[in-house]
């Protein structure tokens, strides 16, 4: 960006757009990459529950609270 552009704040280079887009996209992607075993684990959990009762669906959600990662597992039982 030229000095004049900087001074008057009218010139916005495309690099800052690139930076912002990357930051947002990567934040999302990193979150989903943090648990690479998720699909496999979900299959295993379903297998275990099946041994005892009927399972309709298993939903796994992840959350982060400061330094602790959470995995929440919701099991919907079938009739």
């Amino acid at each position: 960006m030229s000095l004049m552009g900087k001074l008057f704040g009218k010139e916005q280079g495309s690099a800052s757009v690139a930076r912002d887009r990357l930051m947002v996209t990567l934040a999302k992607e990193r979150a989903s990459n943090a648990f690479p075993y998720m699909e496999e684990m979900k299959r295993d959990i379903i297998e275990v529950i099946k041994k005892y009762t009927k399972v309709k669906d298993v939903t796994i959600t992840t959350d982060k609270n400061q330094d602790i990662d959470f995995i929440e597992i919701d099991v919907a039982l079938g009739k």
């Binding site: 960006m1 010139e11 280079g13 495309s14 690099a15 800052s16 690139a18 930076r19 990357l22 930051m23």
Partner: peptide, 16 residues
């Protein structure tokens, strides 16, 4: 291009 603000700068890439 970096100077013009049309290419990610070194610091941008490293920060990301």
């Amino acid at each position: 291009l970096v100077e013009r603000g049309d290419m990610l700068a070194i610091d941008d890439v490293l920060q990301i």
